[in-house]
Computed example of a mutant assay.
Amino acid sequence: MTFTLRPGPVDVHAHWLPRELFGLPPGAPFGAITDRDGELHVGETPLSIQTRLMSDVDAIRVDMDRAGIGARVLSAPPFAFARDDLDGATDYVASFNDALARVVRDGGGAFGGFGSVTLADPDVARREIEVLAASEGIYGIAIPPVLADSSLDSEPLVSVLAAAAENDLAVLVHPMQLPSPTLAAHYLVNLLGNPVETATAIASLLLGGIAERLPDLRICFVHGGGCAPDLLGRWDHAWRARADVSRSSSTPPSEGFTRIFLDTVTHDEDAFRLLAQKAGEHRIVLGSDYPFDMADGDPVAHALSWGADEAALARAARELLGL
């Protein structure tokens, strides 16, 4: 029997992690996940969400029913990405992917999945991608926008993108909320760090010519593309004014922006309308960022009230997932 998702809106940006993997992969920058009086912590940082919401599949279903979501494509929270080539990283990735495949298989079409890969080793990642591509209901992989001192136009991430494209898997790019001394207060590591990480990755993909080199790549950036929609005019100006900006790409960034996918998590009608204007409604997919405190708790209602077309959202999701 061919695997199919349930009818209704498809949320492509939602997180899940089984409790047995709360220890996180080797080299995780924040330390392990812990449950403190029912609240989720990463290291010493409280995440302002109930612990059970991250791993309880029944709780995810309840939230989907409340929000009118037909199916959710689950991915690991970004602090569970296997960033470093350390002993145990591949075992962690395999354990997550096996557990995700079970949830998808047993979900009756309620869930799809974006698997994880061992990011530091492109050869290992390629083998993991080949396994994921053979798993029903696994539609792609989730990766961070930056890794060490590089982004999507450099190794190892560019090889991971190429392997995903070759195996007909989509790529979801999710910021890791990397620590920075200048962003330590006021939750700025999220409020500013996340959108800047995402914009960095989009600029690297477009200005680095990677989107042109990999025309079959289906790639989605969350949080409405971060601050990229506001910066496209600046990027286009630099692309025309400076040879070092345009030397790797043949089209201005604003043109390439209409070929990537972006989710609806903008938290603001004006920001959403700018995103739709810059990307086109055919490239916007529904997202929630469940279960985090920065999630859009009513993504369908918000997107439709801001002017999104439900049929266009559905078509974009199907195209991203390769359905």
Rank of each mutant, 00 (worst) to 15 (best):
V12G: 00
D270I: 11
L231R: 10
L178S: 14
E269F: 08
D65E: 14
A312H: 09
D153F: 00
V245S: 08
R240V: 13
R247Y: 15
G8A: 10
D84W: 12
D123K: 13
D236R: 09
L86W: 07
E197G: 07
R273M: 07
T2D: 15
A101R: 08
P181Q: 10
P144C: 03
L275D: 06
R36K: 14
G280C: 13
G280N: 12
G140A: 00
V171E: 01
A148D: 14
D298N: 13
P78D: 02
L24C: 09
E44L: 12
H174Q: 11
L275N: 07
E212K: 06
D293S: 13
A163I: 05
L205E: 04
K278R: 15
G27L: 05
R213T: 06
A228H: 04
S254K: 12
F79D: 03
L214I: 06
D87W: 08
T4A: 15
F3W: 14
I33Y: 15
D106T: 04
L74W: 02
G109W: 05
L147Q: 10
G115W: 00
G224W: 01
A311N: 09
F81V: 02
L40C: 08
P175F: 05
R66K: 14
P156I: 07
L152K: 06
D298E: 15
A308S: 10
L21R: 13
R234M: 08
R105H: 15
L147K: 04
E166T: 12
G38K: 08
F96N: 06
A148E: 13
L5D: 06
D87L: 13
M176Y: 09
P253T: 06
A317G: 12
I141P: 00
M54Q: 12
G107T: 03
R72M: 15
A211E: 04
F257M: 08
I143D: 00
A76S: 06
G137F: 03
R213I: 01
A199I: 03
W306L: 03
W235Q: 10
Q177M: 14
T264W: 01
L40M: 15
R234S: 09
D153W: 02
D263Y: 02
I141R: 01
N194K: 10
P122E: 04
E255M: 08
L304C: 02
D106R: 06
D298Q: 14
D121H: 08
L40E: 08
H267G: 11
L53V: 14
N167S: 12
D168E: 11
V160N: 03
A243Y: 12
M176H: 10
R36N: 11
G256Q: 04
S116Q: 15
L172K: 01
A94H: 14
I219D: 01
V285I: 10
D293H: 11
A303T: 00
R242P: 09
F257N: 02
E310T: 02
